[in-house]
Amino acid sequence: MKKFDVIYVGLLLVGAFWAFVINSANDEPIDRVQPCDLLDIVSQTDKYMTTDELARRLMSDDPTLALIDLRSKTEYDKYSLTGATNIPLENVLDDEYVDIINQDIQTVVFYGNSSDLAAKAWMLTKRLGYQNSYILKGGLNRWVETILRPREPQETASRVEFERYSFRKAASSYFGGGSALGESTTTKRLSAPIKRKKKSAAGGGCD
């Protein structure tokens, strides 16, 4: 009987080791979740940062914000948000950027013209188990509509809406007038990124 026990335990250990070797032999970032778990994470996790929230944090000079502009360099050069780093979506997992994307001190906010690119980048970070990343809901288009060109609410609107409107108007004059041009801010680097500690267990498989 003991032989069997040993064989089984041995098999398991070898299997686990093998899996580990296979995963870490690759220079790719390691998948932290299985496909089926990814869907649960995507549908359950808090994904979005609203433009209002972003404006609020930018206006208070929040040092923990890491803005990632996922559009092409050309578009980024025309205009982007203050302090944003330009990482086109296809390069977002390149080694040189891993310290920006994968860390749990700063809040990473992805954006493009809309939410599409950001949704993809965000999904990848979740696949790799990175924390603290968000999608700017509606992207720059929504940024223009809500922050730069806020619409006055109807007279019958609630007080909350009026308060939001007055905030947006203030934000509009804060961000307007060329203060947020891409060119002038590209030099600004993110404060030293802090490496995220590797987590021990690779999370239960689900396939």
Binding site: K78, G112, S115, L140, V144, S173, G176, G177, G182
Partner: peptide, 22 residues
């Protein structure tokens, strides 16, 4: 296709609240 820029962002920023330096 929402991923297309709807606005000329730079111009709008410039037009918003006293376009300085731009």
């Amino acid at each position: 296709n929402p991923e297309i820029a709807q606005y000329d962002y730079a111009r709008i920023v410039a037009e918003t609240a006293g376009a300085r330096n731009y």
